[in-house]
Design a protein around this nucleic acid. Structure first.
Lengths: 339, 339
DNA sequence: CGTGCCAATGAAAGCGCTTTCAAAGCCTCG
DNA sequence: CGAGGCTTTGAAAGCGCTTTCATTGGCACG
């Protein structure tokens, strides 16, 4: 595996051909294990390639084959463990399917749309997660016929979508909390910021309404622990103080726990807190939350995408897939339910 | 931004040229904002391109330009928040530098070497993290002249390396724990599994030796919470029981905390536990740990790589960079030091 | 020994761009 | 009115592969 000769940059198939004394066609065939070459020739070519430390240019190959053998995933951010898990699930499946993986976090950047279009030109298909790019960009990419899957995002025209279940579990959470006797609710998170938050808030609101409990207005808040802490501190200073703060995700909830501690309040005796996602930290913070199949979301999106890519020319099916979630009860919502 | 005409697949520059009534050279120039085109021509070309929903093929462009405008990062795994943070830092900087990002987790797969070589053919430079691939693969890639940066990995020939500081902080941790009066140490983690673990163990051992405390043999253990839990359970069943379990990372330490709880032991009164990384969960578990500049590690690697790419033809400098780490004291190592 | 076939190989045409070099058109100025 | 210099555009040559199609040579068979 060592480079015997001068490992100059950009060794091409022509140099291998010359060294092996064959044509480039034969080199290509030999290195791709075609049946059309004698074992002896194959060996000679292999040897020449090894001596030159030759790796075929992926560009040349892709251009000739008309495919990238790569797919991409776009997500709003990688801060916090949630997205990382999704990307992990995606990468793992994509790798098994023999595809390279491109990633792009948009971070709400102004040039996000351009970056996503650029990615679209590099891949055989892509997954777009959450509200990372504008609808018209999604539509435009879809219009090119590029295989596309939306993840945790409201459907756009007839593009396939994969999402976690939000409504049912949110109602269940509402019922559970009402069962604790709580009546003064607060909701931390901006339904306009992400489709998932909208779904969670809607489910919670529906559950509360059913139980005859007043539905709180959502308190918008960035998706970071620190933002959750300060927003929760504000809520806890209100009179009457909310009896329970339902947070749109675990990071906010962890921030709320911190704020409660700083305000000298006990959880759950003085104020209950719940989250969403079931991050590792939630377990150690005793946080009641809703477990998301994060890795499975990424993996499922990768599989759907692969199906589309293999099924070219793709007819968009507009398939909607919803993955189940699970209420995880811990101490932060009330002690008598502790498991 | 809508597609006016039939959005057939694979619109090429030739069709745009025909529609705009110019040559492909002019199309290329117009779309790339070259000075060599009249504003009127540019507009005509733009309009034609928009009508056809044309996006230039990245393959054609890269092949012609001789560059991918992409770089890659290879890491052992994405499980757990540590690697995710590193990748995040990497992606962010790479994006700012206008580069696409490819990722690959090797998961200890048998075909990891092939996958990494495949990535090498797709990028203008890459970062290899930890013990994700064999040394000879690294050497082989380096031999092609591809810009390369190693992250948290022992140097290979004269390839640039970026690493967190392990030794000094590990000694500091040792001194601190000895200061608590602890004498029976245990170390959870396999120094052979990752260069960082080796460095941490070595530093700890050096610190203990200086203090005249017996150095424990490391207890190998996979990098997962569950593995940490069961390994720690085994340790806690030993007689005499170790007074403190130093874990190679936070996930193991969180597992150890779980095991202690299950064994009915109080932390830190009966047994102290420390970790490494300062994950979000560590904060809520009260875990004493060593904070790693994870995001900064990724960002730094991205910058070093970019420097190499820009400086082609690259002369390898073999630069070694070490990023500082910080001891974070919480309750799990002993109450009197709580901050 | 000649004919016909099959297996192995080579020549060359793309794949979709960028860029060099040449040509064409238009001004300006003598 | 013609020469020379710009500016703008086009033709064509790659970039490094894969693959089709043609060619070559060897062998079996008549």
């Amino acid at each position: 595996m060592k480079a015997l000769s001068k490992p100059r940059e950009g060794v091409t198939i022509y140099e291998v051909a010359k060294r092996a004394g064959v044509s480039i066609a034969t080199v290509s065939r030999a290195l791709r294990d075609s049946e059309l070459v004698t074992p002896q020739t194959r060996e000679r070519v292999r040897a020449a390639a090894a001596e030159l430390n030759f790796t075929p240019s992926r560009l040349g190959r892709s251009l000739a084959e008309g495919r990238h053998a790569a797919n991409g995933i776009v997500f709003p951010d990688l801060v916090g463990p949630y997205y990382a898990e999704v990307v992990l699930g995606y990468e793992q499946v994509a790798a098994e399917l023999g595809r390279s993986v491109l990633i792009r976090a948009t971070h709400g950047r102004a040039d996000a749309d351009a970056q996503v279009l650029e990615m679209a030109a590099r891949v055989d298909g892509m997954v777009i997660m959450g509200r990372s790019v504008a609808d018209d960009v999604v539509a435009r990419i879809a219009a090119t016929g590029l295989p596309l899957v939306l993840l945790s995002r409201d459907p756009v025209s007839d593009v396939d979508t994969v999402r976690p279940e939000n409504d049912t579990t949110a109602r269940e959470l509402a019922r559970h909390l009402v069962g604790h006797g709580y009546r003064r609710f607060a909701f931390l998170g901006d339904p306009a910021a992400a489709p998932d938050v909208a779904g969670r808030y809607a489910g919670l609101a529906a559950g509360l309404k059913e139980a005859g409990v007043r539905v709180p207005d959502p308190v918008p808040c960035a998706f970071e622990l620190e933002a959750g802490r300060s927003a929760a501190a504000g809520l806890l200073a209100c009179r009457p103080r909310p009896r329970v703060i339902v947070c749109a995700n675990d990071e906010l909830a962890l921030g709320a726990l911190t704020a409660a501690g700083e305000a000298g309040l006990r959880v759950p005796q003085d104020v209950a807190v719940t989250g969403w996602d079931d991050l590792m930290a939630a377990r150690f913070a005793g946080l009641t939350t809703v477990r998301q199949p994060m890795r499975e979301l990424g993996a499922t999106a990768a599989r759907r995408l692969h199906e589309q890519i293999e099924a070219r020319p793709a007819k968009r099916t507009g398939r909607q897939e919803t993955l189940p979630t699970e209420l995880v009860l811990r101490t932060s919502c009330g002690t008598h339910t502790m498991g």
